[in-house]
Simulated scan of single mutants.
Amino acid sequence: MTTPADVHDVRDPALPGRLLEAERDELLPLLRSRSADDLALPVAACPGWTARDLLAHCAAAFTRVLEGRLEKGVFTAESNERDIAERAGWDVPRVLDELERGMTGVGPLIARADGVLDLLALGEWVHAGDLRETFGVPGAYAGAGLVHALPLLAQVTRVQDHLPLHADLDDTDAPLRLGAAPGDRTPARYIGPAPVLVRLYGGRATAPSGYELAGATAEELSLFGW
C-alpha cells in the first residue's frame, strides 16, 4: 500500500465516500453474520454502549446527514442517546439496512460540505474498528479501508489545524504528513504501524510498545471527544 506524501496539501472531496463504500463492503457482511449475543457485547471504546447501540448511533448519524437534520446540538452525548433510544424497538436487520443505506448514500453530501463533515466519515470508520475489536476480529483498524482512511486522516487534521506530525509508517511506502503546516512548533514524529496511528488519533487505548512518538503526547493527537 502506498500513501502519497502530499495528500496533506489538497482536499479530495470524494475521499470520505470512497472510504465509507469500501468499509460498507467489508463491514456489513460481518455484522449480518453476528449473533444477538455478539451485538449485546459492551464496546470498550464507548463506555455504556453495546455493539448494537454503536450500530444504532452510526446508522442514525448517516440518516441525519441524508435528511439534512444537522441542527445545533447534533452529535452531542444527549443527541446520540436519543438516536439510540429511538431505535431500541427496531429489529437488527432494520438497523443494518439503515446503516448500509447511509454508508452508500452520504458520500456526495459529505463531498459538498467543504470539509465540515469529513470527520464524520473518519469517525464512523473508527467505530467500525471498535466493532471489530469488540468481536475479536483481527485487524480492527486496518483492512481495505485503510488506504482511504490514512489520506482522510491527513485531510481532517489539516482542516482542523491540528498539530503537525510526520509519520513513517511500517506498512506504507511514503511518509504521511498530518496536521497544520510546520510553523513555530516542530512537527512531532511517529514511527510504527498505520493501525496504531489511527488508534492514537481516534483516542483509543493502545499498547505502550510497538511504535515511537516524539514531540507530542498521545492525548494531544486525539481528534474525538469519545
Rank of each mutant, 00 (worst) to 15 (best):
R34S: 08
V126P: 06
G136F: 01
A140E: 06
L19P: 04
R177Q: 13
E23C: 01
D170W: 04
H127F: 13
L28C: 09
A142C: 05
V10N: 04
E133K: 15
E67W: 09
C46M: 10
I84A: 04
H166A: 13
A128G: 15
E78T: 13
D97W: 01
T134M: 08
E86D: 15
A45N: 03
G139M: 06
S35D: 13
R18Q: 13
V65D: 06
T134K: 06
G192C: 12
R185L: 14
E23L: 12
W90I: 00
A181R: 14
F135S: 05
D97I: 07
L200G: 03
W49D: 00
E219L: 11
T2W: 12
G136D: 05
D83K: 01
L117Y: 12
A40P: 06
V10I: 11
G105R: 12
V65E: 05
D184M: 07
A180W: 04
A205W: 01
A194M: 04
L152A: 09
D37V: 02
A174M: 14
A149M: 11
R199W: 00
G215Q: 06
A140T: 02
G143C: 08
E124D: 09
T134Y: 07
T104C: 10
L70A: 10
S209W: 09
R112T: 11
D171E: 15
I84K: 02
A174V: 04
G192K: 09
L153W: 00
R34A: 10
G105P: 02
L70R: 11
D173L: 10
A144N: 07
R94I: 04
K72L: 13
R185M: 09
D38T: 03
D118V: 03
L31W: 13
W226Y: 12
